[in-house]
Design a protein around this nucleic acid. Structure first.
Lengths: 225, 225
DNA sequence: CAGAGTATTGGAATGATGTTCCAGTAAGTT
DNA sequence: AACTTACTGGAACATCATTCCAATACTCTG
């Protein structure tokens, strides 16, 4: 195949899958999810769109690969400790990753069965095994954790993006949500109204971890008589 | 405003926000998320794209409204029983809704702060209150449930869509995932490999409910000394 | 019931996107 | 030096959301 040629490769200036993905990540970080276009990418790499298609099959391939690069990098950076705190570390690592790079969130949730998903699943699954969870409950435990982690992180990312399109920072955004909720109809939305105050100055990260602990508690609980 | 005119209305044949949203839902159900275009919608309603813009501001407005219609409809159809089984009913209702109409999943996760989200949150929040969860733990409990429900449902929806683009039914898709996982590297992915068999014939709905029960158990557990 | 005014329509035009196509070029091979 | 292959870059295509505007159908006023 092209492998030998590519690594021996033309000039160092030449295009490659890695260089394109790297540039994509920069573009996604600086201009957001909509900022990634083949035209902008081609301009940044001083070439044409056609050249990019030689290395990368489609835009979804591009997004998927960029996402996987980030996830792999994040997971590799984690220290290994006890099972429960490793699970917390993986969870927080993904949360922070998506918080800092919101596009990773939508890429992760849009295309499943992905290598990235398996990476995370594997890391968490090993800890679940280490906790001694019986075989038939492992899938439920891992599934719940995965769904929670990806769910919260992506929702958080979507919030950030929504705030950004409205030109608000985190504080103003929460303020806006809080006032919107406090103006809801009292009879139809009593709970949302009562939460309006707590929303204003809650800590996403802390709440996220609280949820993880809730699930971990649920996983532990049946085996404590 | 136009309200009086619209209800007195031109002919019954005339366009209206409701008719457009209704047609959008039909289009989304029959042709998938990408099938909803202003052109296809205009053709179906025997008009031009410009006419639609008189009633609906943008495509995201259209998707949001269609989504909200479905969620409201689903929540209204639920019977009210005990707190815990109501939570299960809400969860299953949303799961099935997204399972049958995958586009609702991506619409829900893409645009947060939405009316739909508040509807679900309210419904669950009231049950959490009824369970006697102390004030300061309510947000964590509801947040965990919301994230889990939306997370799993959307992941499920994404799986369905992926399967559909590859022309596979549910069985063949799980089969494909199963064999893909079983071919992973033994040293790097022992857990995923061990799950490959269980994946093949698991029940999404049952696993989903198992996760809900896991979280409910976690919510209950600290208050049982 | 005529005419003015406004709500609504439908289709053409605009600008941006992902993707394809292909003529060209540079490296490696014989 | 020829020839093959890997790669490049830019033009071209189809499609999309959105905007614009002239034409229309309705309502209201006199």
């Amino acid at each position: 195949m092209a492998e030998r040629l590519r690594s021996a490769g033309r000039r160092e200036q030449s295009l490659s899958r890695e260089r394109i993905i790297e540039a994509s990540i920069e573009l996604l970080d600086s201009c957001g999810e909509d900022g990634l276009t083949y035209r902008a990418l081609a301009e940044r790499l001083a070439t044409g769109p056609g050249a990019l298609y030689w290395h990368i099959a489609s835009k979804s391939d591009l997004l998927t690969s960029a996402c996987d690069t980030m996830v792999a990098q994040t997971l590799n950076a984690l220290a290994v400790t006890t099972p429960e705190s490793t699970i917390r570390a993986v969870a927080l690592g993904i949360f922070d990753l998506i918080d800092e790079h919101p596009w990773v969130g939508s890429a992760l949730t849009r295309t499943p069965g992905l290598l990235s998903i398996v990476r995370i699943l594997e890391r968490i699954g090993q800890q679940i095994c280490a906790l001694g969870v019986p075989d038939e409950q492992q899938w439920a435990a891992v599934g719940a954790l995965m769904a929670y982690i990806l769910g919260v992180s992506s929702q958080n990312a979507a919030n950030r993006q929504l705030a950004r399109t409205q030109g608000l920072d985190r504080g103003s955004f929460l303020e806006a949500v809080s006032t919107a909720w406090s103006q809801l109809d009292t009879k139809q939305y009593p709970f949302a109204r009562s939460m309006a105050g707590q929303i204003r100055d809650h800590d996403d990260r802390a709440d996220f971890l609280a949820g993880i602990d809730l699930i971990l508690k649920g996983i532990r609980s049946p085996r404590q008589p």
